[in-house]
């Protein structure tokens, strides 16, 4: 490899479509989410920083970074301080597996046969680290929130993985970039697996801790849930991580069901961003249209309805391959 190629790899991982691109874009998507949510409720939403509040998430992030770093007594110091950093690292890593279509390349920065399994494993790890943060904070609300996060995980992850497995079965590959490519030549999987798409979006809502499944951080019940003791820089990192997680989950749905960066004409990256925006607005609409479930009801929704439906989707994919 020449020096230029090394430089190119560096640019790809760090700037575009790597770390900086992802961070900026996920903050912008937080603004989209907040603005759309506000407009649906007949409010203005972010308004002061930048044109129509465009820079508000950046301002929030910077403000939190400038706050005092508080570590309460009795907490498990290492787990408590490391979990936000590791969470941020994990979500950034997960984003490398997504084919974004930047530089008009069909493959993601990290693309190999089996990256699909890594991507799903990373989503689990992210939840486990939010559990660690809540558990190590030795706060009553934190512990309850952490427990709820785990309870919830053992329900939505199953249906989410089964839906994704149905897509893998159908495309006969375990590489996310390949899955998107297969759809580019045929029909999108939102049409072939409509049931899977619906269940996937529902599970995603739980993965992202959004209403109606935001029980781990339900603020009117358990203050902030696992986030109760997190403040300052740690909160900034967790919030950034949750923004990137929103971006990651939306792009995962795009890759699995909407053919990723592929579109009839025009640059691929624009198609990718348009589809991700569509999925995020879908998530926001669901968030605005429901009340919060109780933790036992969350489990009931997934075990009684979502998981059987995703099993049906797997069976359909097995016996009626496209």
């Amino acid at each position: 490899m020449s020096v230029l190629e090394y430089l190119m790899v560096l640019v790809k991982t760090l700037i575009y479509p790597g770390v900086i691109f992802v961070i900026i874009l996920s903050l912008i998507y937080e603004w989209v989410d907040r603005k759309v949510y506000a407009r649906m409720q007949n409010r203005i939403g972010p308004f002061y920083v930048g044109p129509s509040g465009f820079l508000q998430p950046f301002a929030d992030f910077l403000k939190l970074l400038s706050k005092e770093d508080i570590v309460p007594p009795h907490v498990d110091y290492h787990v408590f301080t490391l979990s936000p950093i590791i969470t941020l690292y994990l979500v950034l890593l997960a984003m490398f597996l997504i084919p974004t279509g930047a530089w008009n390349e069909p493959y993601a920065i990290l693309a190999f046969e089996g990256d699909y399994i890594l991507a799903l494993a990373l989503t689990t790890f992210i939840t486990i680290f939010s559990f660690f943060a809540g558990w190590s904070s030795v706060n009553r609300f934190g512990v309850i929130g952490a427990m709820r996060a785990l309870y919830q995980m053992i329900s939505y992850e199953i249906s989410m993985f089964l839906c994704a497995a149905a897509v893998a079965l159908d495309t006969r590959t375990l590489c996310l970039s390949r899955m998107a490519e297969v759809q580019a030549s045929g029909l999108w999987y939102i049409l072939l697996h409509p049931l899977g798409f619906v269940v996937f979006i529902l599970s995603m809502q739980a993965e992202l801790d959004k209403v109606p499944f935001d029980t781990p951080e339900a603020k009117t019940e358990i203050v902030g849930g696992w986030l109760t003791e997190i403040s300052g820089k740690k909160l900034a990192f967790f919030r950034l991580a949750s923004d990137i997680k929103l971006f990651f989950c939306a792009s995962l749905a795009t890759t699995l069901y909407l053919a990723g960066p592929w579109g009839p004409l025009g640059p691929n990256i624009l198609w990718f961003l348009a589809k991700v925006t569509f999925v995020i607005i879908l998530v926001t609409t669901l968030r605005a249209a429901f009340a919060r479930f109780r933790i036992d009801q969350v489990l009931a929704v997934f075990w009684k309805y979502a998981i059987p439906l995703s099993l049906v989707q797997v069976l359909i994919a097995l016996f009626i391959p496209h």
Partner: peptide
């Protein structure tokens, strides 16, 4: 009540 249930949209509409 809507707010306590986490239904922020209904809360905003009713207060409007």
């Amino acid at each position: 009540l809507a707010y306590e249930m986490g239904f922020d949209t209904l809360f905003m509409y009713i207060w409007r």
